[in-house]
Design a protein around this nucleic acid. Sequence first.
DNA 1: ATGAAAGCGCTAACAG
DNA 2: CTGTTAGCGCTTTCAT
Lengths: 352, 352
Amino acid sequence: MKHKTIGIKDIAERAKVSTGPVDKVLNNRGGVSKATREKILKAIKELGYKPNILASNLKSGKQRNIAVLIPKSTPNIPFWSLHQRGFDAAMEELAPFNFNLEILNFDQNDENSFKTQVDRAIGSQLDGLLMVPIFKKETKRLLDHCRSTEIPVLFFDSHVEDLEYTSFIGQHSEESGFLAAELLDKCLTRNQKILIVTLEEKDGNHLHFKKREAGFNSFHQKTNVKLLKYENTTENLEKVKKDLLGILQQDKDIRGVFVTNGVNIVMPIVERIGKENYKSIGYDLIDQNIHFLNTGALDFIISQKPARQAYEGLKLFYEMFVRKQIPQKDYFLPIDIVVKSNLKYFSSHITL
Amino acid sequence: MKHKTIGIKDIAERAKVSTGPVDKVLNNRGGVSKATREKILKAIKELGYKPNILASNLKSGKQRNIAVLIPKSTPNIPFWSLHQRGFDAAMEELAPFNFNLEILNFDQNDENSFKTQVDRAIGSQLDGLLMVPIFKKETKRLLDHCRSTEIPVLFFDSHVEDLEYTSFIGQHSEESGFLAAELLDKCLTRNQKILIVTLEEKDGNHLHFKKREAGFNSFHQKTNVKLLKYENTTENLEKVKKDLLGILQQDKDIRGVFVTNGVNIVMPIVERIGKENYKSIGYDLIDQNIHFLNTGALDFIISQKPARQAYEGLKLFYEMFVRKQIPQKDYFLPIDIVVKSNLKYFSSHITL
DNA sequence: ATGAAAGCGCTAACAG
DNA sequence: CTGTTAGCGCTTTCAT
């Protein structure tokens, strides 16, 4: 069954022009008189023309250069290495379309390193930019450049308000906190208290943590559950540990622990006192955290789905460049709940 | 930067033949002498040739006919309507590659209707078959036909042992049951009992339910938690309801409810007695179940990800036909935990 | 501003 | 069995 495809030639014929102008109209390249443009658009509509992306990409065969501005992974913060799987998967899938990825790493605690990479991005010949917008001022500078050169910019991981970007992909942090609260609530009784812990890198980007906490609190506005809060930097870890130990030992009504960041530091203390006394929840599927899921000390992990963010980000460029679709503004990924029994699905390479 | 692509011509040149035989070797079409075949394969390897799927599909432009053998959705069992979203998404994404879907519905309680559709599938000109293998005998007949005509067959939703199929996509039912047990265990104390409920259609396919239960039991081999079990068909619903009400009222130590099937029938009874007394978990994101998640009567839903199964199934055919990849045997999708707070991500059309 | 025409890399039909 | 060749639908260059 050879479904008669209508192509650029049919349009040309119908509009009584040749294929040259038709192509120009289809790709908004200009250089077509108003009159013929009208005729062509009319023919396109009448014939219900759908472009053949295979033919179009076969002919042009052009490279699409995508730069990825992402913090570098460190032994302490291996989180940023989790994205690679998604980049790899997408590149593999998009291989026929000549995507070209340049990863630009920076130190998330050092604005200068960010600036350096922003400069490199501005200097290179880009078709698209996928970035974690950690530092606002430099991000704005980069964004201005991209706007003037019409390069689409996708944010991932972190959201920044009132900046003009193309699209965002990531987790809704408040909702993840709200979800965490619901989960702990199911495991605890009403007279039990919950400790909220946030441990921060000294100069880091803490937006996520605040939002998670806000979401958590928002759930508990309707309950009478007592929430305690401990917040500190990771500069003096010994003090942090002593503090936490003290808090948990002193108040035996604390039975829930919500860690917005640094769950791998908190869990050894919980284990010391007795993991069977606590229900706990933390973020991110890094090995240090997974360990405590396996020992049973940590009950839940909420994943930000870094690999999926990376994968969907690149696919979004495919949608834009190859399929000429206009993306939605924001893509909030599903918030996955990971426990010991379903861990393998999320840590393995099976799915993203 | 024009990365010099090596094509079929380069191979021909290198092997001192023309493109004709090269194409035949690449596509295993036969009709090539052993000697030239060797030369060509050598050249392919030496040059690291990668086929250009754009060109290949542009030229051949052939239709791929995929039949989908799936139970029909009914008001009572809307589950089978959830797949459509996945089919739609995949078809949209694969539009350039001329896939053609034929949905063959059957009554999952009527082997005859299945047979009818098997006949239709055998009679039509297929390139691939995506099916729920409910009835073993007829499935085998269809499989034999497909093997002899070299049509790849993907099973989804249900797994059938010792049948030769290409690949399976779905949920690992035992593991989902094990997960359910872990979740309830987090919410209950050791002296509380759990009721396992299975409600079956009279002639249905109950493999999933048994496996879920087995997984659940397997978790509790290491605990001292008391498990009770209630199993019945949905033929006499009044009796079922009376039975359940009796069981729950009589034994106030029952605080957990695990429903392998029919959670929408069980939950009204839980609500009647007092939903705050129970932690409960059931399967499938159909509206009737979602309702109880929203009222707070049902704590967890495990989704089989029907839309994702449908989507991945079609994508697998894309991998096979277009990208000429050989699929793995089994794809077990991640087991998602859905609670009230993250429900919207799984019921909406955002992601699959 | 428009038309004509040469391919992109591959397939498939046909001739040798 | 092997070589030749005409396109697939679109982009792009060059001439008009």
